[in-house]
Computed example of a mutant assay.
Amino acid sequence: MAETVTSGGRGRSVRIAHLYPELLNLYGDGGNIITLARRLEWRGLRAEVAEVAIDDRASFSDVDLVFIGGGSDREQRIVCERLLEQKAELSAFVRDGGVLLAVCGGYQLLGHSYLMGDEKVEGLGLVDLYTDRGAPRLIGNIAIESAVSPQPIVGYENHGGRTHLGAGVQPLGRVLFGHGNDGKTGEEGCLAGHVVGTYIHGPLLPKNPGVADTLLGWALERRYGDGTLEPLDDAAELAANQVMFERLMSGEEKE
């Protein structure tokens, strides 16, 4: 695994693996890692972030939280082939309660398969879902209601994929504005144990601190048996979240 960068205090720590950032970093997805690290540091906790390059062999045995971002079809295919080589290790991590956040292309990799053009590509099978294609692309700002955040989750989506959840899979949330998984069901993303998949870019976590803290709380609970987090002054973040949500819901912006 790539060299780990440690920052923050001397107390509890969260070990974060950022998979293949040189390939998967659309719409500022790297901002999600910055947000996780800062929210730990501001509480006097340590963030240990390892950037895993495509030529590295990832080890999930000492990791608390894994992040997979979004990329083009070509980059997504490269990453999928690499992750399939490590499917057993990643599956064991998820079964053991490891926290995984996957955005857009990374989200599609979680399922049994996804379409690249007319080709059906094998996915990781971590969650009972699959992705096919549709037209037009689903593009624009989005807001959803979700159990993982006390505030509406806001962001941006841009995907040609149509993701279909298995019968027992819970969506991340209910679409209030925008398109979501397929533009029809009113569902967005998936929530399976500590696995979160979503099409929401922007990046996701800076605009939605409640989601970031949910992920960190899960990671701390798994490692230490206590996921309690000290509250932070999120006035600026929550004001930005509210402004965007109210703009979308007021009808100022059309889907």
Rank of each mutant, 00 (worst) to 15 (best):
P171T: 13
L100E: 01
V79C: 08
V79T: 02
V94C: 10
A92Q: 14
E145V: 08
F93H: 14
N158S: 07
G173D: 07
H159V: 07
G140I: 12
E157D: 04
R77V: 01
I139R: 15
Q76N: 06
G160L: 09
D182G: 06
P171M: 15
K184S: 14
E187H: 05
F177S: 10
R95S: 11
L84S: 02
L172E: 03
Q76V: 00
E81C: 01
Q170E: 15
G183K: 06
L172C: 00
A88H: 08
N181I: 13
D96N: 13
R74L: 03
Y130D: 02
I142P: 05
L84R: 14
I153T: 03
V121M: 14
R82S: 07
K184R: 15
L124Y: 12
V175S: 09
D132K: 10
F177M: 08
V121L: 14
G98I: 10
V94Y: 11
F93S: 06
M116N: 07
E187R: 15
L138I: 05
G168T: 01
A167G: 00
P152K: 04
E89N: 14
F93V: 03
N181V: 11
V79M: 06
D132S: 08
G125D: 05
I142E: 05
T131E: 09
L90N: 03
A143Q: 04
D182W: 15
L165Y: 05
V175A: 09
G155V: 07
N141P: 01
S91V: 02
F177G: 06
G186W: 12
L176P: 03
A147P: 10
L84A: 09
V127W: 12
G97W: 12
V79Q: 06
Q170G: 00
R74I: 02
L129R: 08
G134C: 12
L100N: 04
Y156M: 01
Q151F: 07
H112M: 02
P152T: 01
N181L: 14
G155D: 00
R74T: 02
E119S: 05
V127P: 13
H159R: 10
Y107L: 06
G178D: 06
G161T: 03
C104V: 01
H179Y: 15
D128Q: 04
E119A: 12
N158K: 05
G117H: 15
D182Y: 11
V79N: 06
V175M: 09
E89W: 11
L84E: 13
N141Q: 02
A88D: 15
I139Y: 15
E75S: 02
K184F: 12
Q151I: 00
H164T: 04
Q170P: 00
R77K: 06
G173Q: 12
G168S: 03
L110Q: 07
C80A: 02
C80M: 06
L110H: 12
Q108E: 01
D132C: 09
V121T: 09
G125I: 08
G168C: 00
I142W: 13
T163D: 03
P152S: 00
G166S: 05
G111P: 04
R74D: 01
G183H: 10
E75M: 03
L176M: 07
L84Q: 13
G155Y: 07
V148L: 13
